[in-house]
Design a protein around this nucleic acid. Structure first.
Lengths: 144, 144
DNA sequence: ATAATAAAAGATAATTTTATCTTTTATTTA
DNA sequence: TAAATAAAAGATAAAATTATCTTTTATTAT
C-alpha cells in the first residue's frame, strides 16, 4: 500500500503526538526504539516531515521532535502520505497508465475508483490526535 | 497499490482474454505492444501466470498465450494479484507490523480494515471476462 | 568561550524491484 | 528429419528503495 518510508513516517508521527500530549520531546533514538524502525533511515524521514512542517524539530540538548497540541486535531494521515509518497495513491491509475482518465479509462478504472475514494476519505478524515489517543488508552500498539 | 509486475500481469490477462474471445492466440510481442509494457519483463510475468494456471501457453509456431472461454467468467482479479504480489495486500498491516492483529491492533488497523475489505471484495468479485468485454466494446482502453 | 548534545546534510552501501539478454526446450511445418 | 517458431529457463544489468555512516550546523549548559 505505502512505502516503508511512509509506514515509518506514520508510526513516527503517531508516537511523537502521543509523547507531545505528555509534553515530552523525543529524540531520533527514542522514536526508532518505540516504533521498531532502523534509526538512521528514520532520521531521514523525520527530516522530510520536519521540512513539510508536519512535525517540529529542535537541535541541541533537550532538543528532539514534537507536535504542537493545537495542531494535532487538524493533522490528517493524508498530509503524511502526501509528503512522503506523493499523490499517486489518489491520482494514479490502478494499472499504472499515465493516460488513464475518466474520458479514457483503463479496464479497472471504475472498479478502483470506489476503493481509492474510500481510502482517500479515510486518510483525509483520520487525525493524528485520535490515533495517538488509542495508543495512550492502550487500545492500539506500535510494537510487538 | 500493486507492483509493476502485477500491473503488467493484470493488463496482460485482460488483453489475452479479449483476444481469446476472438479465438486468437497472442505472442509475447503482441502482448507487450498491446499493453505498452517492456517485452522481456512481461515474458517473465507471463511465465508466472502460466505456472499458476491463470493463462495457457503453447510453444512453437502458432503458439502463444490464451485463456479458455469457459474459465474467463470464473477468473477473478484476486487470483492474479495473489499469484504475483502474494497476500500482503489482504493480510498485511497498513503500517507494516508483522505482529499486528485484531487482538493487538496497530493504530490504523481498524481504519484500514474497512478499505482493505472493500478492495478484497472488489478483487474477488471482478472477473476477467467483464473487464475484457469493456475493452471489446470500446468503453475502456489498454494504451494511450 | 568551550564542551556536550542532537538534528541536518551529505556520501555511500545493501537490497529489492524492474528490466534485458542469452541459451534451452517444445512444437510445427516444410 | 531439418529448419523455423515461440515460450521457458537462466544469467546479468539497471534503477529504485531501503538503510547506514560521516561530517556539519545549531543549541544549550558549564
Amino acid at each position: 500500500m505505502f512505502s516503508k518510508a511512509c509506514e515509518y513516517a506514520i508510526r513516527s508521527t503517531i508516537y511523537i503526538a502521543e509523547q507531545s500530549n505528555l509534553d515530552k520531546r523525543v529524540s531520533i533514538t527514542d522514536i526508532a526504539k518505540a516504533i521498531d524502525s532502523p534509526e538512521a533511515f528514520t532520521a531521514k524521514i523525520l527530516q522530510q516531515l520536519s521540512k513539510n512542517q508536519i512535525i517540529d524539530s529542535i537541535k541541541g540538548p533537550n532538543g528532539g521532535f514534537s507536535i504542537e497540541k493545537k495542531n494535532m486535531r487538524n493533522l490528517k494521515l493524508s498530509q503524511i502520505v502526501l509528503a512522503i509518497d506523493g499523490d499517486s495513491i489518489y491520482k494514479g491509475c490502478g494499472l499504472g497508465f499515465k493516460e488513464c482518465s475518466e474520458k479514457q479509462p483503463c479496464p479497472v478504472h471504475n472498479k478502483f475508483k470506489i476503493v481509492r475514494d474510500e481510502l482517500k476519505y479515510m486518510l483525509e478524515n483520520t487525525t493524528i490526535l485520535e490515533l495517538s489517543l488509542g495508543l495512550k488508552e492502550g487500545l492500539t500498539f506500535l510494537h510487538r
